[in-house]
Amino acid sequence: MARLLKLNVFRYNPQDPKSVPHLQTYVLDETDNMTMFIALNRVREEQDPGLQFDFCCRAGICGSCAMVINGRPSLACHTKTKDLPDEITLLPLPVFKLIGDLSVDTGVWFRAMYDKVESWIHTRKEFDPKALEERMDNAVAEQIYELERCIECGCCVAACGTARLRDDFMGAAALNRVARFVVDPRDTRTDKEYFEIIGNDTGIFGCMGLLACEDVCPKDLPLQNQLGYLRRKMGITALKSLFSRK
């Protein structure tokens, strides 16, 4: 009754001079409630101990295990095999540097992103350990958290047509990060300052609106709305300065 799953897995170890990129097939019997986390670990433990892939929380929280599953970038840990056909093709995320097999280097990419968008609260205030915290409307806090939910899995970047075509495109994750600070009243940056970061073709104006980011995001972040919001906001910022200059 149990299905036999055929897993076609991308294999290549750049550290092994003998390794050549190829698809390797593993056959595995499906068990109840099987996720790709269970499947891949079984492959590693039972068939191919050197197979490289990344899992960490295995609960859809940390974003480690993004890979291209039958064409779609998604989190392997919350992909249930029962939702997939008998034959499953697994590829590493494009755009990011390959470490080996299904494992890619998202860490370096995202750290560079933090620097680029200055992913932190910009404030002139000093922290006073004796004072009460500054008040904030709970609705605002929840709005910030809504955008803070990004787990940096890289799915949106790998699914992005622009990111595939140009290396310097920031991608939805970075733009969403900017949106997160835009809604945060603690950050004192002005629209003009945000414009300096994202007001060009590597930023919001590079977005071609294919919306694959919105459609693959495993956390269902409101990327479409945020990208549209930023484009209008930055577009208007540019127009304003056209009239206010001198």
Partner: peptide, 13 residues
């Protein structure tokens, strides 16, 4: 907790 709020944690209020 207050320091974290100052650094940017969106605590529920």
């Amino acid at each position: 907790m207050r320091r974290l709020a100052y650094w940017g944690v969106p605590w529920n209020r």
